[in-house]
Design a protein around this nucleic acid. Sequence first.
DNA 1: ACCTGAACACCGTTCAAGT
DNA 2: ACCTGAACACCGTTCAAGT
Lengths: 222, 222
Amino acid sequence: MAKSGRIERRTDALSKERIIGAAVEILDSGGESGLTFRALAARLATGSGAIYWHVKDKDELLATATEEVIDRVMREAIQEADPRKAIRAVALGLFDAIDAHPWAGAQLSRAPWQPAVGRIFESIGGHLDALDVPDRALFDAASALVHYILGAAAQNAANARLAPHDTDRTEFLSAMIERWTAPDPAGFPFLHRIAARFQDHDDREQFLAGIDLILAGVGATR
Amino acid sequence: MAKSGRIERRTDALSKERIIGAAVEILDSGGESGLTFRALAARLATGSGAIYWHVKDKDELLATATEEVIDRVMREAIQEADPRKAIRAVALGLFDAIDAHPWAGAQLSRAPWQPAVGRIFESIGGHLDALDVPDRALFDAASALVHYILGAAAQNAANARLAPHDTDRTEFLSAMIERWTAPDPAGFPFLHRIAARFQDHDDREQFLAGIDLILAGVGATR
DNA sequence: ACCTGAACACCGTTCAAGT
DNA sequence: ACCTGAACACCGTTCAAGT
């Protein structure tokens, strides 16, 4: 990766890879607010200014860390013969990755021009193509899926961060409906109607149901 | 709104409403990074500490500003007899609002437990109900639509912020595909295939196409 | 009750100085 | 070439002091 072919001076030398690795660890354990140049420098046993030799600024730090994490999922993506299954697998892989790294979900929605979004687009689009989606509808369908996947995953991850541990998930969701409807008890017939389902739903399953809905729509409009 | 029924001492007194109004103005003109307590205090001709008397912290500031902006759209929502048209109208209203206030889109994805999300859910769900979606599918369909709307709108708004003015939109999108595919020219057959469409597509139309795709899926799985 | 503004404990980023 | 760490120009938030 270095310009010259010379050997490294010492094995523990700073490098962009090591910096990003440490950044991912800090982001995972301390969230977005935990990632500071001081904390990163401390973990790498260096000065904060040293990081700037390898990384332009905090934005690049966050963007590269996100690339790292998404790259991992996209590489691991299980090969599925059936295009629908393949799309579901990619979607679920991204959902789980963003659930594990909520900061990556926020970053992708904030900067959807990131290369990772291009790779996701390519993967989803390629599978849709194999599904014989007509040329005219192909781009719209891929775009809808990518927007849905990234949006739903980011929102879910944010929600999951807020919720206490799973024991009282039902209670937590019930309180959410209550807070939403309390200002106008008669104004939320729909929310009251689905309240029971809301409290007990599984985020992952519902996410997949959304994927299936879009895929059904793709099939229906063919 | 005040606890006592007494008249206000002076018309220019600080209030949560005035603070939020100023915050929205700053956010719209200077973006999320422009909103600081110092800037807000300066615009309101007061000390930064005064704001804390009316607002808990910066998070509440951002959340309340978002409520304000979303409330506006949801109130203005044109009454449509046809449920599909109504859903499209609500979706498009939100898309435009988030396009005009990108910070609100980011906030909604970051904090989807906000009351505004409950109101959006209620509106979309109510219209789906009128569409005779079976009970079992109702919640999943509403959830998919809300996640898609908020996700797509946030991602679009972020993108729109980055792009230069419309003159060279085609050029901008073309450069994006180029950046995405350059690292591996043979690895992106799908992106190359849709490149022409990508450069010329309209974000608003494509957003609506996604809504229609989900609605078609809802109809197909009935 | 409400406002003022200095003070505190942080940030990201720069840069002269070192090796 | 790469690293150090103090310095700078900011932040959000608190709080004694005012009215």
